[in-house]
Amino acid sequence: MPLMPKRIQHRKTQRGRIKGKARRGNTVAFGDSGLQSLEPGWITARQLEAARVAISHFLAREGRLWIRIFPHKSTTSRPAESRMGKGKGEPEQWVARIKPGTVVIEVGGVPEDLAVQALNRAAHKLPLRMKMVHRRHAW
């Protein structure tokens, strides 16, 4: 089941613009390795679910997975072959707004080579360029 909010204030939102880099959520905080976004954009709940399934199938019962983002924003679409006008379309899917630097998914409890392979599979399910990052010690 793809992620979506339980309660929302408004059904439809404007598209908005993603400015700047991620000042928070830009480090691996729970697992040992993760995927960090290199560009701004939206990740849909379905893409996130596909990435999760790719990792959990690859790792089978080993390790643990953390999804660090949540699709808070609804996007709408118009029915096929409908004319312009008649108001905004109906909510179609849920997306997470991603700033460059955001750590999207983390994996822990597995050897590094396995984690890298699993994250590589997940990165192929996501629409943004990703970078593999590892946990750093505090200074």
Binding site: M1, M4, K6, I8, R11
Partner: peptide
């Protein structure tokens, strides 16, 4: 190790959104 989740069951569940 965690038990594998049953995905078939998940596909059937469709939660409607609630207005806050």
């Amino acid at each position: 190790p965690e038990e594998l989740e049953e995905e078939e069951e998940e596909l059937l569940v469709e939660e409607p959104e609630l207005i806050g």
